[in-house]
Design a protein around this nucleic acid. Sequence first.
DNA 1: ATAACCGTGCACATTCGGTGCATGATTGGT
DNA 2: ACCAATCATGCACCGAATGTGCACGGTTAT
Lengths: 310, 310
Amino acid sequence: MIDPRLITLRVFARCGTVGATAELTGYSPSAVSAQLRELQRMLGMQLLTKDGRGVRLTATGRFLVAGSDTLIAEWESLRAAAMEAGDQVQSRFGLGGFSTAAAQLLAPLAATLRSTRPLLEVQVLEANPARCFDLLVAERIDLAVIVAMQSDAYVEDDPRFEQTVLLDDPLDVIIPADHPLAARESVTLDELASEPWITESAGSTYHSLFTAAFTAVGVTPRIAHEAVEWETQIAFVGAGLGVGLLPRLAPLHHAENVVRLRITGKGKPARRIVAAVRRGSIGSPLIQESLGILQANAQRILTARPEDER
Amino acid sequence: MIDPRLITLRVFARCGTVGATAELTGYSPSAVSAQLRELQRMLGMQLLTKDGRGVRLTATGRFLVAGSDTLIAEWESLRAAAMEAGDQVQSRFGLGGFSTAAAQLLAPLAATLRSTRPLLEVQVLEANPARCFDLLVAERIDLAVIVAMQSDAYVEDDPRFEQTVLLDDPLDVIIPADHPLAARESVTLDELASEPWITESAGSTYHSLFTAAFTAVGVTPRIAHEAVEWETQIAFVGAGLGVGLLPRLAPLHHAENVVRLRITGKGKPARRIVAAVRRGSIGSPLIQESLGILQANAQRILTARPEDER
DNA sequence: ATAACCGTGCACATTCGGTGCATGATTGGT
DNA sequence: ACCAATCATGCACCGAATGTGCACGGTTAT
């Protein structure tokens, strides 16, 4: 309903270059350039200025983008209210999420929606949290499941988004099956302080979670190995290279020689998984139903996992 | 910026038929029909229902139209603020007004703007007040100068419009030059109670003004003749057929044998002339400048008229 | 200096969106 | 009860808007 050129401008405001905007919106760079030029012409405003080899928003452009937040939210809210009031169904629904979230939460959601609403066209995109927000702005997706990072750049109360906590996904310890503690029901982080740890590379999304968990209990772990994928980390643990942290939502699959233990004591690390939507759209019946399904599924997986794995 | 299809829907909500919507928006009926169908498709909402030989808004449709008022206002407000903040100029500007208002106020305004801002494309449409509001909704014009009628259908605080009083245009009496009172500076309505009056046909825009003026002083005038145009009425008076009321803004031109007298006493009829714009757009620099020019011009004409005419 | 990157103009293709006319459905007048 | 008027809509057609792909000029980093 809002002119797609304004959406493009908003995406540009986020990424700063025409090329990145094109990649994110799905247009070609030429199209983005033409859209922005047309937008300026039709509004009679100069929104962009040449800046080196790129372009930059003018003060007017920044003003317009900032003010458009409430406009978008207003429209989303109106649409959601109309959908609810009129008991209507929408035809397209885009979902985005990050790795395990996508696999464990979005896939079942998509499946459920597909059976509940056969004529709804559901699309799932796997993307990291930051990109999920971009995709929301670009209107490529309508709902994102992401891991909330306190240290992340996005602010809690961004005027463009609304977020709902789905669950706090606790981190478990995975250790080799032949480890002395493998028979235990649970462990504390203190007990594992001297173990060689396997973590993700520094600067990665989950590395900050790892360090935060240990600073909470006041010990400094020894990082022996680094892995990028959960699967790799699990394999390292299975090979006896060390121990690691694994979110409970992340499945062990058919991992051999690896045992999952719950963490007790004061250091109870967890990652917060939230659903994010464009502000105003939270009232939409489809979003509401999706949030319900997500939360139910999350709880089910969360409680069912221990029996599954042992 | 708002999808033109939504604008079309809003116009349809006002006039109720596809044909009238087409006439007002400037599209063909087929185009309106296609737009509304496309709108429903892209929103996944059923907005229209067949109703006899026409179509009618569904509850969802009415809800959407009602809610879109604030959306449009929000956009207008944002655009106006951006224009002002960035010191930008717009390229097109549509004006609408009713008969004398158009001739006496809009023409000078258009002329002034044309010289002040050479590259601004100004368009003036003459239309009656009700149609002016429709044209504002349809975004064919951006500013309308109309006569405020308390008895009219439009409400003072319509969420779609904002109105500014330009001036209270007093009604003068026009009498034949050979009338016994013609030499007077001013008269009261009492003194003319027994005269044969020339007015507009009942139900016309100004007829209610006429009756309101006389009910205020408690006398019932005798209506001898009816005219549609001011010019005709003036000619009738010049021919000695009776006396009439003429707004001060309406010029006597080269009328022969007609004298304009001011009205004194408790019955001082006047018509209120207001400028109307889409809600939110009042802050636009172009609108602000136009309102200033209009008010200045109105005052100038209002004070200069008596010397001009006598 | 050279290479990499970024935005934009141009030729071209496609699609979207418009008009004009014909048609079907419904209502009001006679 | 019929006929004319009114209204919305589908269809053929056409033009304009809007996309892509490629080449080019300008700017920065190595």
